[in-house]
Nucleic acid binder design. Sequence first.
RNA 1: GGUGGGGUUCCCGAGUGGUCAAAGGGAACAGACUGUAAAUCUGUCGGCGGACGCCUUCGGAGGUUCAAAUCCUCCCCCCACCA
Length: 407
Amino acid sequence: MTIEQQMKIISRGVEEIIPEEDLIKKLKRSEKTGKPLRIKYGIDPTGYDVHIGHLVPIRKMREFEDLGHTGVIIIGDYTAQIGDPTGRDDSRPPLTADQVKANAERYMEQLYMVLDPAKTEVRYQSEWFGPMGMSEVLKLMGKFTLAQFMAHDTFRKRYEAGLPLGMHEIMYPILQGFDSVAIQSDVELGATEQKFNILTGRDMQRIFNQEEQIALLSPILMGTDGKEKMSKSLNNYIAVFDPPQEKYGKVMSIPDNIIINYFNYATRLAIEEIEEIQKKLNAGENPKFSKQRLAREIVALYHGEQAGIDADEEFNRIFSQKEIPTDIPDYRCSESPIKIIKLLTITGLCQSSSEAKRMLQQNAVTIDGEKISDMEAMIDIKQDFILKVGKRRFMRIVHETNNLQKS
RNA sequence: GGUGGGGUUCCCGAGUGGUCAAAGGGAACAGACUGUAAAUCUGUCGGCGGACGCCUUCGGAGGUUCAAAUCCUCCCCCCACCA
């Protein structure tokens, strides 16, 4: 494959490559020497729930791996103690080594849905920060000035807004930067908000007389609310662990105006094809169709083609045709007759009886499609029936004895 | 160390003795509508009891009062300025 073709793959859906010429040089050299490039990406093992926004750079790493390069995932067991200042809030409680390890393992489990394990290295920061002494730390700190770091938006904004900013947080870019030295990184991947940290890695490598890494910055994936970046704390994310139907539904809930954005960054559709979709949307085609296509693609990316198709059918069944889902959990109930409010709470469909009452008042409760609004209703469970709350909560109620007869 | 300003329900944020389960916004949930779990509109949004009642909540612990998120004491945490 020519360098131009490789660059086309690498730069698809990438916002910025700093500096681009040097990446081309590195690629050429690697091709000549047969020595793979080392592609770095760091994670903080503070949790393990990965969402598809995290995977934008990870999918990029996979593309590098497919081109013969080596992915290096850094488990940030030291930076995790700081918490990325680019995130909004407060300091985090330190994790134990066991928690870090457990989180890292679950994290990797999800990343391997995308990455090739044979071409991926996993490294812990503690490998190099563990043995490091205070004098070395001071030396590293001495290479940078406070003004440099305060020029960074996230530090400055927090400072100016009068929010707490710990001394250790300022160390974050220094640690992340040193990682690049430790693993001799050629390219570091990250979202655009990581620009400062990744560039600090270049500075650090220069200080240590290493060739500087390339910063390859991916756009930040918008959350399902279409307003803020996808993040767990804002609860606008699609998790890798979400079951297919859930992923599908969440995609369907994004605002229409970010459909193309998602096609670009959350799928691997060819650019030409995305342009086609854009044209149709401009021509006034019902965005529902594009959005369903998008949802199907995203589900397929993680669960396979068939799962995408199934999710699609299921969605149409439940929401367009208002039928019941194929798979409904059973609840075996031995009490009959039973008060409707009690039934709603013991099945877990409502969290409290207050909520159950609200649902009843709001005409949200049906039994086999018939609305129940009487709070005092007593329900006879002679035959199985479908209890539904709102649009999405279903439960099949089975009388205990019925169930025994069947089995 | 000094001075001043803060810590409120999932989040932001109003509230300075009773009319406060606590304004407003966001999130979430429900209904209508629709093309979708989009948008829009309406409603709900601590818990328990069939509303009126009761219980729990306003950084923590005590106290004053018939009555406290609101006043007092001590403590913990955050911010700014001065050193």
